[in-house]
Amino acid sequence: MTTTVQAVPKWTPTALDRLWGRDPDLRPALRRGLLGTPGLLFILVFFLYPLFLLVELSFQAKAGGWSSEHYLRIFNTTVYAQIIWKTAWISATVTLLNFLVAYPFAVALARSKGWVRIVLLISILMPFWTNLLVRAYGWIVVLHPRGLINTMLGGLGLIGEPVAIVHNTTGVLIGMTQIMLPYMVLPIAAQIEKMDGRLLQAARSLGASPLRTFAHVFFPLTLPGVFAGALMVFVLSLGFFVIPALLGGRRDILIAQLIHFNLTKVLNWELAAALSTILLVITLGIFLAAQRWFRLNSLWSEVK
């Protein structure tokens, strides 16, 4: 005897079903991905396409046709290599200074309550909401030889001559460190707030002094936030233009200024494109390395 199997008519989702996410074959991740379509289109048209044009331009010879002459010129000219090196050095120093200032601030912010917390939050976010140029000129007012700091120090008799803290590397470091502060403070503070307070109690109960509790438990648990902040600050510093241009001296030319110079003064757009492409590749390389080593993804997703 044979058994007949009643064929169940298979429901095939229409395009509309797909759009509404009613297609069971469409995996949930993909379905959520559809929500990103408008943003994705925007990025494609206004970001990725110009980026492609930029890279294309960097490979065009002055005399027409394809060439890598601009890249060869960059790598063979000492000044260019020095500027790239200086950019990396300044960015690394800004990142370190930022960490030293931001960490205690983030601890204070995460631990604060009520109005103290509001004051701390505003003091970190207020500059964030202020125009970059305004902030840069603000720093000049403060750091100038006849500015706030020098006047105060001179008035107290602590210094005879005004100290040079603007229109040089020091000025760039001070300005950039302050401006990048929120990028370091916020991820570290988020990490501290996510921390289970009982872990610290457990460490104490197991014999760790407050200092060793910090070193062995608290600090390691904030490291993802530190890495995220450092990455953000370093990468943003690499391409910084306004602060080095206004607070730096003549010798503090960074890669962004070099690009600007080639675009507006020398009108060598192909070379500017090549410099931009190099900056882009370095940035992407850093992100990929971070992704691989520090599992950057876990920073955006909730850690249990």
Binding site: R198, A202, S205, V217
Partner: peptide, 20 residues
């Protein structure tokens, strides 16, 4: 004495194991 000088074993509700 502070907690680290009491030498008592404590097992917490959610275990409080160090995830790192």
């Amino acid at each position: 004495r502070p907690p680290d000088k009491r030498n008592l074993g404590v097992v917490f509700q959610s275990y409080a194991l160090f995830p790192h």
